[in-house]
Nucleic acid binder design. Structure first.
Length: 878
RNA sequence: GGGAGUUUAGCUCAGCUGGUUCAGAGCAUCUGCCUUACAAGCAGAGGGUCACUGGUUCGAACCCAGUAACUCCCA
């Protein structure tokens, strides 16, 4: 039979993904097994798969597949979130292209368009995840705006409102003039921007002296002078005592405003004199409250100046800034300008410069919710991996501010608050209930008198419920599913949404169920290119994940991602990792090919008992390490341990040990043991490389399997016995084999030329056990045991035993002497340091006994070795 | 400005309670091989002042202090 020389993945990937789906292996329903649950961080519906998703979901799939193979009832819930701002912006743009203006649509019409859009594009990422092999329970796919999810959001809003934790208030919010909505502090990205500092001259009313007729104010926002309510100086600033009790005129519009005194003003910034614009700056707003200043809002929702500005009405804020600078200059009110860089906030969603704006918004009190959420993490009930994020988490939770949960959008859950004609508010699940509540206040009211709040809640106000709401635990808190799956086990997400999302899920989980939503939060790093730049569309430095899969196979890409992803550290992604993954898949394929090609002869005795025992022992040792790595969420190390076990121990050593000579058959015992090992290796690899392993699993090499006997649900092997002595002795054998190969290499001898080996045994190792292996792997013609060094042979030491290879070419005495002298020198140095330690009374007195003992062993070993080398040197000299 | 983190081989990273012959792994590099599973491979080899300076200690990559560079979070 012909087996392909290289593994071709594409066919296997399609075939087995479909098979898994058809057989329902991803499906989870509560039963009496222990549950293992992951909820996906829902990607937003506007997105396409990027490398961050690849990383994140590979990790989740590795964890979930492993859990499945450990006999747990593994449930991975997939879904998407509605991303109100981003999606609404996309839909508005799409409608605009079709010549439709959002303002001309009713809310219902717009939502219908948005829903169409979501149906068409919203599932793209989930479809792409299937290519990666994600074993989500697709029957559970959720969307944050599904009816039941929406009802959950409304329920918790009402619950928290009744509790008094949701309130309405005028606040300075981050206004996105492009999205025309408030955004939360977390959605504002601050960037350094080159700006200008404008030094503007204000005329002082009723100046006492000619020299005190003006005051200069520095500002980056000259277009807001029309909204000025005061000029503020530090009371301790002696330069400005002449202004105490005075007022000044705003240039261009000549409105008179008072001079106020407040310690808030920094004397050495700008001119030490601040214009106070309560409507357009958070700090000014607070100053305004302290000094009872009027609030003059001169900006419209779209960032244009309104009639209150009296000049430049209808101009965009940035255009107005340029124009007013010219006007000030013409009016001789602009003293000078100066370059200045400062932080400006931009909307994460639209990239518009954020405008601080006073508006009526809904808020959720954070203080009460933050405390328990902080405690879960501090007392270790919720583990952050890596732990370094605990500090950041604490800092944030201790300084959290109330959460602005309203958004001036349509795409999302509409706030269930209804306004009565007199301005009173009732909060209710439906218009009917709202009317009832309203009629309790005023029986004369009819449905027509009520007006529901136009705004929707923040998307995070849906997704914070995710681990509960996907199991319907908000609406039906005692249902079988939530009781079974909650709390979930692991959450895998990016550190940048630790606060946005993770912290708030802990709050919601605690509030709804008095329980944490997950045990462990595995925080992945940011995927960067190999230059350390964050991968982004703008830079074009991100490979298309699907192209990668096509090129390197899903398994290859998965391995590539896992190889370079230490938890919590950014990963410098490079395609060569995927190449390594592909090569690894090919290696496994070829091991399979080798075994598959063997003919079995039942009459043969098994000559490989030692090799078989050793690999079993070695496998168990690796398994122990892998279990430990997983327990500590060191996934890339778990993979590397597996990688080395397969490539080095299994392929390079074990298979070579037992491999029969070309066209010779193998004995049946070795054959069946090897197949059993290979099957265990497939299991071990499956979480990382699901497709290849499933493909091989079903080969007839492993006998006939019934249709449900699949690698995906195979149970991982239990850790068996480890023979430490055997492992150690094989290591010595491996060293000696390498040494012989090395001699062959350095003498440019063909590997085909068999060499004779003599051993002078000083240790307790019985080399007779390993004769077959040594002869086979080092291509040794004969093994002899000697008691004296062999003159003229190439020698080396492994452990404390001496080995001699006699070649029919003369040993280069000078070269050999030099090599031995070098080793001798090293040993003498080494001995010196060991003796220094042992000779040091304080060391012997202070160090732990086992450490002292070990030093003595080191000395003995080194002395023995040194003696051998000296003997060999002496022999050479003769 | 405040806080956190990082710095170990060309690259990406391990290195746990300070003590094994402790300076490691993978990749890359170099040398030799198309040796009947695999050139997507095999056999070998080289490569490091553990960022820097001091301190603690019998002993420091590891603990402490300071310095530098980079990264992130917050204002």
């Amino acid at each position: 039979m012909d087996i392909a020389k290289t593994y071709s993945a594409q066919q296997a990937e399609q075939k087995w993904y479909k098979y898994w789906l058809d057989k329902g292996f991803f499906r989870s329903v509560p039963d009496d097994r222990e549950p293992y649950t992951i909820v996906i961080p829902p990607p937003n519906v506007t997105g396409v798969l990027h490398m961050g998703h690849m990383l994140n979901n590979t990790i989740q799939d590795v964890l979930i597949r492993r859990a499945r193979m450990k006999g747990k009832n593994a449930c991975w819930v997939p879904g998407t979130d509605h991303a109100s701002i981003a999606t609404e912006a996309k839909v508005v743009a799409m409608l605009k292209e079709q010549g439709i203006n959002k303002a001309d649509l009713t809310r219902q019409q717009f939502l219908a368009h948005a829903l169409d859009w979501k149906t068409k594009y919203g599932g793209i990422i989930l479809e792409q995840l299937k290519k990666l092999g994600a074993s989500c329970d697709w029957d559970r796919t959720k969307f944050t705006m599904d009816d039941d999810m929406t009802e959950s959001v409304i329920d918790i809003f009402i619950h928290l409102y009744k509790k008094g934790w949701i309130y309405r208030g005028v606040r300075m919010v981050n206004w996105d003039p492009q999205g025309k909505t408030a955004v939360s502090d977390e959605e504002v990205i601050r960037k350094e921007v080159n700006q200008k500092l404008y030094y503007i001259k204000y005329e002082v009313a009723n100046a006492d002296t000619p020299s005190a007729q003006h005051v200069i104010v520095a500002t980056t926002r000259p277009e807001t002078i029309m909204a000025d309510a005061a000029i503020c100086i530090n009371p301790n600033d002696e330069r400005y005592t002449y202004l105490h009790g005075k007022s000044v005129y705003i240039p261009l519009i000549n409105r008179e405003i008072p001079v106020i005194l407040d310690n808030y003003v920094t004397m050495d910034f700008g001119t030490g004199c601040l214009k106070v614009t309560p409507a357009h700056d958070l700090n000014d707003y607070e100053l305004g409250i302290r000094h009872n200043l009027p609030v003059i809002d001169i900006l419209d929702d779209d960032g244009k100046l309104n009639e209150k500005a009296t000049i430049l009405v209808g101009e965009d804020r940035f255009a107005a800034r340029k124009k007013i600078a010219v006007m000030l200059e013409e009016a001789d009110a602009l003293e000078r300008t100066e370059d200045y860089t400062s932080q400006v906030g931009f909307s994460e969603r639209t990239n518009a410069a954020i405008e601080p704006k006073l508006s009526m918004q809904w808020f959720l009190k954070m203080k009460e919710m933050a405390q328990p959420a902080l405690d879960y993490v501090l007392n270790g009930e919720v583990k952050l991996i890596p732990e370094k994020f605990i500090n950041t988490y604490r800092h944030w939770m201790e300084n959290v501010r109330d959460w602005n949960i309203s958004r001036q959008l349509w795409w999302g859950q509409q706030i269930p608050a209804y306004y009565l004609p007199n301005g009173e508010i009732v909060v209710a699940k439906t218009a009917e209930e709202a009317l009832q509540l309203a009629q309790e206040k005023n029986p004369a009211l009819t449905a027509a008198d009520l007006r529901q709040d136009e705004d929707v809640v923040d998307t995070w106000f849906s997704s914070w419920l995710w681990p509960v709401s996907v199991f319907d635990g908000v609406r039906n808190p005692d249902n079988a599913e939530i009781n079974y799956y909650y709390p979930t086990n692991d959450l895998v997400t990016a550190p940048e949404i630790l606060f946005f999302w993770v912290a708030r899920m802990i709050m919601a989980g605690h509030e709804l169920r008095g329980q944490k939503p997950f045990n462990n939060v595995y925080l992945t790093g940011i995927v960067r290119d190999k230059l350390g730049r964050k991968m982004s569309k703008q830079l074009g430095n991100s490979p298309d994940p699907l192209d990668l899969i096509n090129q390197y196979s899903a398994d290859g890409v998965r391995v590539g991602m896992m190889l370079c992803s230490p938890a919590g550290n950014d990963l410098m992604f490079d395609e060569s990792y995927c190449e390594q993954g592909r090569n690894f898949a090919n290696k496994i394929w070829n091991a399979f090919k080798l075994i598959k090609g063997w003919q079995v002869d039942d009459s043969l005795a098994n000559p490989n008992a030692i090799a078989i025992e050793w690999f079993g022992s070695r496998f168990n040792q690796a398994l122990t390490e892998i279990e430990d790595n997983f327990a500590q969420y060191r996934l890339s190390e778990a993979l590397m341990t597996t990688y080395k076990l397969v490539w080095d121990d299994f392929c390079a050593w074990y298979l070579e040990m037992i491999k029969p000579a070309y066209q010779h058959p193998i004995d049946s015992e070795t054959y069946s043991k090897t197949i059993a090992y290979f099957e265990n290796i497939l299991k071990l690899l499956h979480p990382f490389m699901p497709f290849l392993t499933e493909e091989l699993w079903h080969d007839e090499l492993f006998g006939t399997r019934n249709e449900m006997d699949c690698c995906i649900v195979a149970q991982l092997p239990a850790i068996g016995e480890i023979n430490a002595q055997l492992n150690a002795e094989i290591e010595v054998a491996q060293q000696l084999i390498a040494q012989v190969r090395n001699i062959r290499n350095s003498k440019q001898l063909s590997p085909k030329e068999a060499l004779p080996l003599s051993i002078k045994v000083n240790s307790a190792i019985n080399y007779n056990q390993y004769t077959t292996i040594i002869k086979h792997l080092a291509n040794i013609s004969s093994i002899e045991y000697v008691t004296e060094s062999i003159n003229g042979a190439n020698s080396f030491i492994c452990g404390t035993d001496e080995f001699f290879v006699t070649l029919n070419i003369a040993v280069d005495v000078a070269e050999e002497t030099a090599r031995l002298e070098k080793e001798k020198e090293y040993l003498i140095g080494f001995l010196k340091s060991v003796n220094a330690k042992l000779g040091n009374e304080r060391f012997v007195a202070n160090a732990k006994p086992e450490i002292v003992e070990n030093e003595q062993k080191k000395r003995a070993d080194a002395e023995a070795k040194l003696k051998i080398i000296e003997d060999n040197l002496a022999a050479l000299a003769n």
